[in-house]
Design a protein around this nucleic acid. Structure first.
Lengths: 196, 196
DNA sequence: GTCTATAACTAGATAGAC
DNA sequence: GTCTATCTAGTTATAGAC
């Protein structure tokens, strides 16, 4: 659809800028003025692309929510529990690394959670986060397992977006996050051999 | 001093209310009006107890920061690395459970982090969070260890404050968080025997 | 597609009455 | 210790010019 036009470009630059500022100041701590200033345009220009701030927030979060949805669906299609967990965990970690700051934001910022829950129908525990945790922990998990999975889910997402690792390349970060996730879930290493 | 007066009571109720609202809406998403309404007083009455919103934020965070400081100091006084890690981890988990929502907030909310870093001198990586991670990971940790520790630190704090476990009693939650922390740090179980 | 100008509202904060 | 009233400056959002 006529990709690459000035309009599309400004829109996507706007979303990139919004994500950056959201992760620095939180959604509520980021004003449309800040976004406009960062882009070198005016606040009114922002309103040309999005009707409300919530619409920006939703557009920022949407791609990751949809990817998570797909990973969960793919995992459910696998036969063994072991394969389901492996697929969900590695898909989740890959998404975290590809979208560094977004997943941490989604796991901690009340502003983005409010919008996401409203935008992507989440009646009673049926939101993406809850379903992902269900895939990793199983049907009726023990409290210990539920908590371990929760720690993995939240910890990985927050750490992946941490500025401390901004300089680490994607492959390295993904390997280490995956290893941490497997260790906490009590799963055997994917690649044995070297290292203790 | 003169504890138990109406003044002290309103002040501490104000801090409790602020913490509750901060954890629900974030610091930036919480207005003084919301705090005043929740307490059934006016905004001006809030200003009698605290000069600025930052002062409220600082007062909310202060007890936990000081407790973390003390835990770190105690850990450093121990001889073996193993004992240092055990003390830091169990102290951290105990604090998380006792102050359910506060630690998660401190690990995720940009508003509270800004105030804490300003209020409790944090020049270059010398903030409480960094020092706690240093105790757990050692002097010059590998990237893998640094990331694992970071996942533990953030994950435990976020999960401890999660509303999902609000109904779990302190002892049970503490046991499970500690177990998850030990597993991710690759440490042997404290209490073997029953349970798989 | 971006602008100026402004409306409507809410934020944090202060002065002074009681 | 809490109130009313008010201020300034910020916010989201709209209307209409270019």
């Amino acid at each position: 659809m006529t990709a690459g036009t000035a309009a599309t470009d400004t829109r996507s630059r706007l979303l990139d800028t919004a994500l950056k500022l959201f992760s620095e100041h939180g959604v509520e701590g980021t004003s449309l003025q800040m976004i406009a200033d960062e882009l070198g345009i005016t606040k009114a220009a922002v309103y040309y692309h999005f009707k409300t701030k919530d619409e920006i927030t939703e557009a920022v979060a949407a791609p990751a929510v949809q990817e998570l949805d797909q990973i969960i669906a793919e995992a459910h299609a696998l036969r063994s529990r072991s394969a389901q967990i492996d697929h969900a965990l590695s898909g989740f970690v890959a998404l975290i690394v590809r979208q560094r700051s977004l997943l941490g934001l989604y796991n901690s910022d009340p502003g983005i959670q409010r919008v996401v829950n409203r935008a992507f129908q989440a009646p009673r525990g049926e939101d993406v986060k809850t379903r992902m945790k269900a895939v990793l922990a199983g049907e009726n998990p023990s409290l210990a397992d539920a908590i371990a999975v929760h720690v993995v889910f939240t910890g990985l997402a927050m750490v992946g977006g941490s500025p401390e690792y901004a300089g680490i390349d994607d492959d390295t970060l993904r390997e280490h996050l995956l290893e941490a996730g497997r260790r906490l879930l009590g799963r055997p290493r994917k690649r044995p051999g070297r290292g203790g």
